[in-house]
Design a protein around this nucleic acid. Sequence first.
DNA 1: GTCATGATGGTCT
DNA 2: GACCATCATGACG
Length: 210
Amino acid sequence: MLSAFQQFFTGRPTIEIARDLLGKLVTYDGPDGRTGGYIVECEAYLGENDSASHAYNGRRTGYSESLYGQPGNIYLYQIRGHYCFDIVVQDTEEPQGILLRGLEPAINPDVMVHHRGISGVNVTNGPAKLVQALGIHSRQLDGQPMEGNQLTVDLEKFKIPREIITAPRVGVNLAGKDGAAPQRFYVAGNPYVSGIRKRDMDLKTQGWRA
DNA sequence: GTCATGATGGTCT
DNA sequence: GACCATCATGACG
């Protein structure tokens, strides 16, 4: 039996869940205190039929095992010496996930700046950057449910994007079958979206509805 | 301000 | 021994 929290992450297309996650508040209770921010950018990975997914063609290893877990679980993995954070979606044995790529710092931003050793939008405008900013530096939470966890997402506290942009995903092989698939979503104009140009930033509203 | 390149470290074949 | 869902830096405009 799934909790109401878990049901948010299943029972509808992953793309729809990803768009719905924009504006939700991610929080982490770590040794240096509480950190967190609003999701401004994410990408959908559609499992066994998605050539950019870690589970493409049913590939299943210890490394990516967490993708096969319950909806709302944590998939924390390492790539090129950096950690990235996915939220597992869809039911058990259906290995789909949503990669968080950008956060707008909201809880103790000064601590997040300290974790990164750099200030400005570079604190959280990338998947490995936001994980480091939160204060996570191991795979300890990989495979755990988010509900009641020190790392979780607050579905009650959220902002509403004025406009959502859809685009191809970042860092995936464009020549691959689904390399150019429009499965990246972000809040238009928010400065913490990775790779956004300065002239495209909306510094007044940061892309949120009033 | 925009683009190209090297460093990075664990996992898989 | 190669592959990467990345990042920081340094060159050029």
